[in-house]
Measured scan of single mutants.
Amino acid sequence: SIVTKIISIVQERQNMDDGAPVKTRDIADAAGLSIYQVRLYLEQLHDVGVLEKVNAGKGVPGLWRLL
């Protein structure tokens, strides 16, 4: 499923980069989806406690990390 793919992308990127959070844009590119589509999935995963959003604010790139 797309959700499983997104989780594995975040996991893979974090492992490659010493646990650093992953940008929404990088996840979207790797999943082959638009940034808006991916954001909806990321928000859902956040709501159920799978991911945390590391930063927030208007015009700030979203950074995500697995919990």
Rank of each mutant, 00 (worst) to 15 (best):
Y41A: 05
R39A: 11
Q37K: 11
G49H: 05
V48T: 10
N55W: 09
H46A: 15
G62V: 15
D47K: 15
L40A: 10
I7C: 05
S1C: 14
W64G: 00
V3M: 14
V48R: 13
K5V: 07
D18I: 07
Q11P: 00
I35G: 03
A56R: 05
T4N: 13
Y41P: 00
A30C: 05
I2Y: 07
I9S: 03
Q37N: 06
I6H: 00
V38A: 14
V3H: 11
R65E: 03
W64Y: 02
L40H: 10
K53T: 03
G32N: 08
V10Y: 01
L42R: 00
L40R: 13
V54E: 02
L33T: 03
L66G: 02
L66P: 03
I2W: 13
E52H: 05
Q44S: 08
D18E: 11
L42G: 00
L40T: 08
N15H: 10
G32I: 02
I2S: 03
G49T: 02
L33Q: 03
V38K: 00
K23G: 10
Q14H: 09
V54S: 03
S34A: 06
Y36G: 12
Q44L: 14
I9G: 00
Q14V: 05
G49N: 04
I9T: 03
A28K: 01
D29E: 14
Q44V: 10
V48F: 12
N55F: 11
R39V: 14
D18G: 14
S34W: 03
Q11L: 11
Q44I: 12
D26K: 03
S1I: 10
E43P: 01
Q44P: 02
K5N: 08
Q14C: 06
R39Q: 13
Q37H: 09
V54P: 01
D26V: 08
L51N: 02
I2T: 06
D29P: 01
R65I: 09
D26N: 03
Q11R: 14
I2F: 07
L45I: 02
E52C: 06
R13A: 08
Q44A: 14
N55D: 13
V38Y: 00
I27H: 01
Y36P: 13
M16S: 10
I2L: 09
H46W: 12
L67E: 05
W64H: 01
V3N: 04
S34H: 07
P61V: 10
K23L: 07
N15T: 11
A20C: 07
T4R: 14
Y41Q: 02
S34Y: 04
R13S: 04
R39F: 08
A28S: 04
R65F: 08
G49Y: 02
M16H: 11
R13K: 11
Y41M: 07
M16L: 12
Q37P: 01
D26L: 04
R65N: 05
K23R: 13
Q11S: 09
H46S: 13
D26M: 04
L33H: 02
T24G: 04
G59F: 06
K23Q: 08
I9K: 01
V48I: 15
L66D: 03
A56G: 12
L66S: 03
L66M: 10
L45H: 01
K5C: 10
K5M: 13
